[in-house]
């Protein structure tokens, strides 16, 4: 068994007869920030969703903190408490206030009593710069504010790993910066993160390692420098030519 925080071996995923992931091998170390880039439909989201088993895994193994998620008897709820996930479309709970969104998991999972969860929620809101929005409904927030709340919510269970799936793609350009800043801060604090992104500049800046996916396989991986400045693969060159 490797000492990696996340260890992926021969990961395959099919939707019906459509094989979307065709065998991926990745190790992610504690504190490492991995950015995943690649063309639309290449399987980036699917890969990310396999890491907390939001998708059933067709073949191979995914091991998180030493626990193999493909084992039938694994307690997924316990595993997921240690993996925060941030979605492209925020997926905040519209019938709850901002603070209630954040408090839901700690209170329901009996991790904290109400008062402690409230304190924790306020602390997280302060961290993402939204203390004054604690009692607001998600509908009244801007996109950037929503995504910062979603990040705070994902952090409420003190996860050791954070997964981001195009966290800024649904945002107006002027709001991208505030969300990236929060992610940047998390990286600086040493959080283990897998970040699927279209922001190449950001990937280059925060990533310890960049993975380029194409058609369900890892096409190339390496340091930001190696990927962005010394691309070897023609497919990567083609992709970068389009997005840069």
């Amino acid at each position: 068994m490797s000492t990696a925080k996340i260890s992926v071996r021969g990961l395959k995923k099919s939707f019906g007869s459509n094989e979307v992931l065709k065998g991926m091998d990745v190790d992610i170390a504690e504190g490492e920030v991995v950015c995943v880039i690649g063309p639309s439909g290449s399987g980036k989201s699917t890969f990310l969703r396999c890491l907390n088993k939001l998708e059933d895994i067709t073949g191979g193994t995914v091991t998180v903190n030493g626990i193999d998620l493909t084992e039938p008897k694994v307690d997924l709820n316990a595993v997921r408490q240690n993996i925060g996930m941030v979605f492209q479309h925020f997926n905040l709970f519209p019938h709850m206030s901002v603070l209630q969104n954040i408090m839901l998991a700690p209170v329901e999972l009996k991790k904290l009593d109400k008062a402690a969860a409230r304190a924790k929620g306020m602390e997280l809101l302060k961290r993402v710069g939204l203390s004054e929005k604690a009692d607001a409904r998600p509908a009244s927030l801007s996109g950037g504010q929503k995504q910062r709340v979603a990040i705070a919510r994902a952090l409420a269970m003190n996860p050791g790993i954070m997964l981001f799936d195009e966290a800024t793609s649904a945002l107006d350009p002027e709001m991208v910066g505030e969300v990236l800043q929060v992610i940047r801060d998390l990286a600086a604090e040493g959080m283990t993160m897998v970040v699927v992104t279209h922001e190449m500049g950001f990937a280059r800046e925060v990533a310890d390692r960049v993975i380029f996916m194409d058609a369900g396989v890892i096409c190339e991986e390496g340091s930001p420098e190696a990927i962005f400045s010394n691309a070897a693969q023609p497919r990567l060159q083609e992709f970068l030519a389009k997005v840069l």
Binding site: L54, V79, Q81, I83, F93, H95, L104, A105, R153, M157
Partner: peptide, 30 residues
């Protein structure tokens, strides 16, 4: 109810039943 609601709830480590009770059903009732 947007399937993303159930996913977000499950990704926090909440069970199917808890997710239904606290997240999906309150929105569905409305």
């Amino acid at each position: 109810v947007d399937p993303g609601q159930l996913e977000a709830s499950r990704s926090l480590g909440l069970s199917y039943v808890t997710s239904m009770r606290r997240v999906v059903v309150p929105q569905a009732v409305k």
